[in-house]
Write a protein that binds this DNA or RNA. Sequence first.
DNA 1: GTCCAGGATCGGA
DNA 2: TCCGATCATGGA
Length: 278
Amino acid sequence: MQYRKVKNQIIIENVKSFDLDETFECGQCFRWNKINNKEYIGVVKDKVLKIEKIANKIILKDTKMEDFKSFWLDYFDLNLNYDEIKLELSKINVTLKNACNFAPGIRILKQEPWETLCSFIISQNNNIPRIKGIIERLCQKYGNHLFGNFYMFPEAKVIAKLNLEDLAFLRCGFRDKYILDAAKKVTNGDINLDLISDMPIEKARLELMKINGVGKKVAECVLLYGMHRLEAFPEDVWIKKAMEKLFPKYDSYKFGKFAGIAQQYIYHYTRMNKDLLN
DNA sequence: GTCCAGGATCGGA
DNA sequence: TCCGATCATGGA
């Protein structure tokens, strides 16, 4: 991988294992939107990025080398060699190998812990288009305005001051009270996301589950997507079915320290090939 | 009208 | 410990 700046674009060449559709549409994130055939636009922290893939070049638009090096390189996890990981995972089981090969351009993004926590609370018993809508409404109402139609994800301390009526416009159903509980605990220090990031994973899970509305699955999503704990293994309905049907002899721990990445390949693979689970 | 969506919680067996 | 009902909402 090499990168260079041309005008106000960063061009990354020879990028392996990075496909925008596969990475943004595999269910790990909710604030990246496809604006045409090849471009996505997304908001991360206080940054808005337009990104495009042409052949094996990734182009980051209207951004600075400084931001790329200090932020996006890490956000897109570009220092991790996914080819090696897929090679290891493929040795475990031929079905897992097929899953790796189905969408080899998936990467696990390093998202913000609080945003990830809040987003996956909203995700419970919900569908992805609706999750995205709720999150966008939340950002537009309580997040800092950047420009145009782009808003930051609201800080926990801003949400913590609200009450249930203030969230009614979200139309997020029974999840409103969970959002408030999470915001309050993160703000008052009952839950310290920075500390949890570095805890042994068993303890980290239990800490996250102190939040009302956070169970095993949401906790695991926060660990994997918001804290880059690649051994975390979220088990939603798809993964549960997939494990029963496709990996009857395997427990998630057998997928090792990159179980979370394996999970992501399996999730996307089975959702896109529903007949595999029949 | 019914079913379902990246689940969690509660009450009762 | 396990199981089923229930929880809001909106699209199919």
